[in-house]
Design a protein around this nucleic acid. Sequence first.
DNA 1: TGGGGATTT
Length: 773
Amino acid sequence: MQKRNQSAMAASKKIRLFDKNSPLKQSRLKSSATRKPIPNWVDVDDDEEHIGRRKRPTGVLKGSKVNHGVVPPPLAHSTPPRKKARLSNAGPSAAIQERHELPIAKGKEALVREIAANEVTVLLGETGSGKTTRESFFSSALSYFCECGINSEVPQYLLEAGFADAGLIGITQPRRVAAMTLAARVAKEQGTTVGQSIGYAVRFDERAGPETRVKYMTDGMITRELLGDPLLSRYAVIIVDEAHERTLRTDLLLATLKRILPERNGDKKGKGKECNPLKVVIMSATLDAEKFSRFFDNAKILYVKGRQHPVKIYHTAQGQTDYVEAALRTFFQIHLDQPPGDVLIFLPGQEDIESLEKSITQFARRLPIGQPAVMVLPMFASLQTAQLQRVFATAKGASVRKCILATNIAETSITIPGVRYVIDTGKSKEKRCLAGAQGGGFDTLFTRDITKSNAMQRAGRAGREGPGFCYRLYTEDAFKEMTVTPEPEILRCSLTHSILQLLCIGQDIQDLDLMDMPDVDAISSAFRTLFMLGALDSTRTVTPLGRAMVNFPLEPPLARAVMASKDLACTAEVLDIVSVLAASGNLFLDVTDKRVEIAEARRKLVHTSGDHLTKLGVLRAYRAVGGGGDGAENDDEKVGRSACKEWVRQHFVNERTLREATRIRDQLREACARADIDWRVSCGDREEPVLLSFTHGLAMNVAFIAPDGSYKRAIGQSAQNVKIHPSSSMADKKVQAIIYDELVYTNQIYARGVSSIPKHFVSIVGTFNRREA
DNA sequence: TGGGGATTT
């Protein structure tokens, strides 16, 4: 990491923008000589080359058992670009008028007919542009799904065709924002408000009533519904959107749908069919559509023509050793040579973003007079909300070019207006759970090459408002060698929660027909963890404790800590800590520039026993200044809010995490009430009960100090060395024993979220958990 | 001395 930083710094010193010998200058010279828009790039927008041999998916593909149907394509670009009025106050009639102009509208009848005729239908989005290359295929399709309304139109066609008479039309999404936004859009187009005939259900927010016919929901919500309704009998149609993303929950949903279809519709011999029939529609944006089709017994694939502004893609002629330096050079080439339009640069992580931010700002100061100014905007998930919002603000004056430096948060979750140029470093970070068969694996977080699908998605971000350009900092050969799609999440993440959930509905994961089956080690590691937590007995049967745990929207270790807090009379404290741990973001902000100030501010917040009680202290201090109140907001609300803002600013704490933690805590309190656990019970200032509760939950995450001062894991690979992560309040501290939230391998194996525990806790917990199991 | 991104009755 440090090496990469140094080389970037060295590189930025080397470049002299207007020096004759600078790489930039050289490439500018080449530029005018070859009359290519940007030098050092290979033009792969090879219309002539690809157009002839591009397979048009009409009729049945040779050598494939898959049925292919075609929705009649609309005339490409036959309709004017959609106005943004959709999100403004235009009335329902205006919205309906626009719907008829959508390309997909022309295929409506065929679409409805095919879905009616088939149990399972796969919808594959595709570009409508005649100039399509194979590469632009993906981005077009993905973009089309988001922008051109397939996921708002199809449910409406089915509603209008009477599919909802027999039950709900459910549409699942991987992200909550998408579920809410789409529901709002469809409600408006139907001339109603969300919560009537059109509704949604996401965590913390459900707007669906008895009249709801079309329900947008996160895939996690429908997974939860399965626990109470194993046949999903309320639904007549389930549309699985963004199936290509292959999230853990989407994969589990697909396997479940495959299992319940015969029960809902009868098998081929006419048996079964105990309730109303079920239709399944899979929406995917990659060529993997064929894989979905094969999975569902060669289901029919419908290709839906889309529309996307063309994105011209360039690759570098040579591979780049330093992608930060390459991004720097490319940005200024665009800035100096190309017409207005904002630039979006994809980088793997915060470190690279901050380093590039510095270099660009430094060089931008030395631009000649008359050049548009540069506004550099970093963007990654742990940024404060205010800083994230700067990205959406329109730049003051026309002579400013925004340069957004983003992680893959900008790939799917957030769309930035005004982007015309994309620079793609071809790298991203990926977390992967490495399971040890004996239990206690660890996560790795490393920078790796992206996949073709990611590359297309990134490129597509340049063509959302008009024709765009994408500069890839890798060669065309490197692109061709990339994997097609990211590895399904189910092969990369911990399975403890899913396995417990499945067992609670009487399903063994190994009997489930999954599109991709996880490794045996990953499965046995999860079983072992569940056994150590007391959620399963030695015959792999769910214990009463396990059944109680699954009712909490928490990973099993945290649910176990909550259960332990009941007996140890410290539920108030444990619930507060667990809610912070379950929140997605980091509690502490870290700005590299302000390291000294941050260390100073943090010293006051640290608890001597470690990170768990430190988090409790932060949450309670925040609440003391008026944050995350118990819903009893009063006249002082405004005063309280500004006091909160000031407090989090002074202490470098992420308020977004604290707000999310508060919502989670409220939800956990409800779950406690149902489980007959009194969440008000507090242990006051005593820390032992809290730490012992967490030792129950983190029984597989224990390490002891060795004579040489290093920590060694209590289980798993014998004598495996563990270092305390530098961000922990326990870093460099020597205590007898520690528990930790997770192990992450970067340069070495780090324990994160660490607390000191008395050594004898381990034996108490070991015998206790096993007795429960 | 180091933190890709989602998500849960």
